[in-house]
């Protein structure tokens, strides 16, 4: 069974269709990268998969459940969503922010169990924020804060990750580390769908690439093929050159 299944999904916002007729399936261990110009509908598509905005027509299934009608606690155990914007109203300690990811697995007062603490430590280790554990969230740099909320999503222990621009604001080393971490997670069975504008990292680490343009799934396939496709050049309005370094590593640059 596909972990994520979308059938003829159309999502409307304010009376306008933002995503139209998207049909796609994502299986275990897949790392899907979504690219497309600003305003193409990438975030809306991700929010619809997370059950945060209902599909106007079509059906969405996350591990067999309809995310907009199933119990949120049930969905949260299977699917973690990292939004593009993250505005925390109160300056919790970094460790507490990460532990919020355990919400769906806790009861009562929700004091962290040994299992919760181990999950938080593993997530902080994966995103290189262990040293920040006792710092206030509002005292972090933008890149550090981004890594902390990626850790929160990992701490949920979900089989599916939906990440909206996880590397925005990260320095090149940490941006690359995030994709390496995602590759490792997917190699061990996690499914990840990642919206990104970093075409280079998308090319290197993505298993499958979706191009979203004007709310439609305009192209889909291996990242190098999608980036080279005419639809991608048209959507972005620039030519994207895909090449290979002497080391064998591939790169993508707009020309």
């Amino acid at each position: 069974m596909a972990r994520l299944a979308l059938q003829d999904v159309t999502v409307g916002l304010g009376g306008k269709d933002v995503v139209s007729n998207v049909s796609v399936e994502v299986g275990e261990g897949e790392l899907v990268v979504i690219v497309g110009p600003n305003g193409a509908g990438k975030t809306t598509l991700l929010r619809a998969i997370a059950g945060l905005v209902p599909a106007r027509t079509g059906s969405i299934r996350v591990m067999g459940h309809d995310p907009s009608n199933a119990k949120r606690r049930l969905i949260a155990r299977d699917l973690a969503y990292l939004p593009q914007q993250y505005d925390l109203a109160f300056p919790f300690a970094v460790e507490e922010v990460v532990l919020l990811g355990r919400y769906a697995r806790q009861r009562g007062l929700g004091l962290a169990s040994e299992e919760d603490l181990a999950a938080a430590r593993a997530a902080m280790n994966a995103t290189d924020v262990e040293a920040l554990a006792t710092r206030r969230f509002d005292e972090l740099s933008g890149g550090e804060a981004r890594r902390v909320i990626i850790a929160q999503a990992l701490c949920q222990g979900a089989k599916c990750l939906l990440l909206d621009e996880p590397t925005s604001g990260l320095d090149p080393a940490h941006a690359r580390a995030v994709f390496e971490m995602l590759r490792t997670q997917c190699d061990s069975g996690t499914t990840a769908v990642v919206v990104t504008h970093d075409l280079d990292l998308a090319l290197r680490f993505g298993g499958t690439m979706w191009l979203i343009a004007d709310g439609r799934l305009a192209a889909r396939g291996a990242p190098s093929d999608v980036l080279a496709a005419a639809a991608t050049q048209k959507a972005f309005g620039v030519t994207i050159h895909v090449g290979e370094l002497p080391s064998g590593a591939r790169f993508a640059v707009p020309t």
Partner: peptide
């Protein structure tokens, strides 16, 4: 959005 995705 985050709260809902955490299970609230």
């Amino acid at each position: 959005d985050v709260a809902a995705s955490l299970g609230v």
